[in-house]
Nucleic acid binder design. Structure first.
Lengths: 235, 235
DNA sequence: GTTAACTGTTAACGGTGTTCACTCAGTTGT
DNA sequence: ACAACTGAGTGAACACCGTTAACAGTTAAC
């Protein structure tokens, strides 16, 4: 049963996370202090401990929310087309767009090492599960593309037996794709991640003042590797 | 003229940076506090202001030192072979090795957004110049490889006019390489950076428990794109 | 209506970066 | 040799941080 207090509590939690988000975009991750959030709501700092066990938990909750928001955005972008190949480009471009529009949030999600990934309850963490839901958008889409038209995988002699063994182990997770296809799927994600991280974190600034065209070319390169017929040039 | 005091001062500066480094490897970037460093040397916190203008300056100095150390390590690794193609693999593998051996240091160098890249004196910053010296190891090597045996660049129709214009602008910096070759050089660096970041930050852990074989395959893929004849499989 | 749970408070502890006023030793100039 | 100056170090203080403890008031439950 949902009492008056339950509703109020949920509302307060939402306000706290909204204030944290506001501080995040205004001053970066380091500006999201427990006391600063409390000050934003006109509360005393210890009051927040009624809603979050620690500052770290607050941040984790914000991260989980951000993952879900990003996931929803990517799904909306993806559904602008019904062609699976186009969807692959839409999702990739959507991730870049979101990252550039929300650099502080992106840095919080992807710019820092995953915190204690060895903890026993790490898999159960809300933020980790939200991250998996986010990753599933890419994984599901690549699997769909492969099922529709299997892309030409690199030969197993190229990958080597050790890598093939590891990829085969993940075949089930990738809906039965053969190791070479799993390899290409990982390549897609790895290159995409690297590109966006570098651009958002300004590590590409010395070489390109506007990385949009470079990103586009890289994406078409990856698309070709996945057997998609890419529009040969932009504009 | 180097007085007695100048020598003592330089020694103290070195001790401070060594203590900071020790705290960094022990507890990550957040453990490198100004007071903590002072405590490590048996000094009071304000004493450090005789050597560094702020906590941020101390970190920047440590970053510059780390870049130089990493650069020296890469050069030593590279010179294990005289074949330029092999050197390209040695440098890439060296960067990965160093990153995995010093994850905290690597996170400090590459895991955070470049701080205020818009500042007027950013280019003159010691840490920025050290970063450029680091990047030059890769740039010079790729340029040498290209001069020895120009790799087959993607056609300009594929890249698009906008990207070609930007790449041509950087042709001088890349020792006269044509835009397509500059593009491939950037691809080499971008993919290498993404791979190592993901592995060090644990963002690849869900897919591969040991990314060494994956890294190797990716590197051979990149090498082929650069026109090198790669050993077809590892082991 | 009494009791228990929940939400908020203030005070306090130990930690952080930074500034200020001060002392003391070492260098420098005459 | 003695005075003047420079540099390195100190403790006290300010404003922040995350966190805990003890306490007060409101709301729900039996």
């Amino acid at each position: 049963m949902e009492t008056r207090r339950d509703r109020q509590r949920a509302e307060t939690v939402a306000e706290i996370k909204a204030a944290a988000r506001k501080l995040l975009v205004a001053g970066g991750a380091s500006a999201v202090g427990l006391r600063a959030v409390a000050r934003e709501l006109g509360l005393s700092a210890p009051a927040l401990y009624r809603y979050f066990a620690s500052h770290e938990d607050l941040i984790a909750a914000v991260i989980a929310d951000l993952y879900d928001e990003l996931t929803a955005y990517l799904i909306a972008e993806r559904d602008a087309s019904t062609d699976l190949g186009e969807q692959l480009f839409l999702v990739a471009g959507g991730l870049r767009t979101w990252a550039l529009k929300h650099p502080a949030e992106f840095g919080l999600l992807f710019g820092a090492p995953v915190p204690n990934p060895e903890a026993v309850d790490h898999e159960l963490t809300p933020s980790h599960q939200a991250a998996m839901r986010f990753g599933a958008v890419f994984k599901d889409l690549v699997a769909k593309v492969y099922r529709q038209q299997p892309f030409p995988s690199p030969p197993e002699e190229f990958l080597g037996p050790e890598l093939v063994a590891q990829l085969t182990q993940k075949s089930e997770f990738f809906e039965g794709m053969p190791p070479g296809a799993v390899y290409l799927s990982l390549t897609y994600w790895t290159r995409l991640y690297g590109l966006i991280c570098m651009e958002v974190f300004g590590q590409l600034h010395w070489a390109l003042e506007d990385a949009a065209a470079y990103f586009d070319a890289q994406l078409r390169e990856i698309g070709e590797a996945l057997g998609l017929d890419c529009p040969p040039a932009a504009q």
